[in-house]
Amino acid sequence: MAIREAIRDGADKTAQASSFPLIHCRGLVKVYPLSGVEVHALRGVDLEIKQREMVAIMGPSGSGKSTLMNIIGCMDKQTSGDYYLNGVDVSKLDENGLAATRNANLGFVFQRYNLLARATALYNVELPLFYAGMAGAEAEAKAMAALDQVGLHDFSQHWPNQMSGGQQQRVAIARAIVKRPLVILADEPTGALDTVSSKDIMEIFQKMHREHGATVVVITHEPFVADFCQRKVVIRDGQIISDDQVPNWHDV
């Protein structure tokens, strides 16, 4: 609890001073020991992402994008280097602290939706609330509000196999935002969708960013998806090779 609050408090303070980096990586290195051969997935990444930023991470396959996102998302630990999430040194957190941080401060969206197949859309969105100890009408109301935001109010009782890929991904987004996280992390969220659905998804992220001040990090291979973002970071061979603002950003 204390950690969760500590990170939250930091966020509230930085709401005024938005130059304070929400995500702060310094010299991140990740080495995977793969059957004797060491795979250097990240070779010293320095990255700062401020609150209310909307960032696209691009790069060829195997360049280390997912590896970076897993570390930022507290799902994996770096081999060396520092990572501060809202000023908190994540490497100092224990297992429970990491779980609580993921639950309270991070919202994940995956390429393959990763919804529970044997549960309704509503239940899938309620799940993060359940792990926070909330249940009953309170959880249902929050989950319904999140489904509303992604335009799936009428689909709350649908099962994943009764929905299109785009709809499933919107359920996954509702699940990611239901706890109002500090950062939404999306790893190729449009990778399995057609252009129209991809645009829908990106518009939802933009809306979250515009209306609720969400910080969004999106990994993508597609330039038109990256064009929805304000900033474009390109990675190659585990290193950042460019970091630019998008000139004609879609956002108003």
């Binding site: 998302g73 799902m75 609580a100 993921r102 994940f108 990763n114 919804l115 529970l116 799940l127 926070a132």
Partner: peptide, 8 residues
């Protein structure tokens, strides 16, 4: 998935 959304 459960771990990603906060299960310890």
């Amino acid at each position: 998935v459960r771990m990603a959304i906060g299960a310890s």
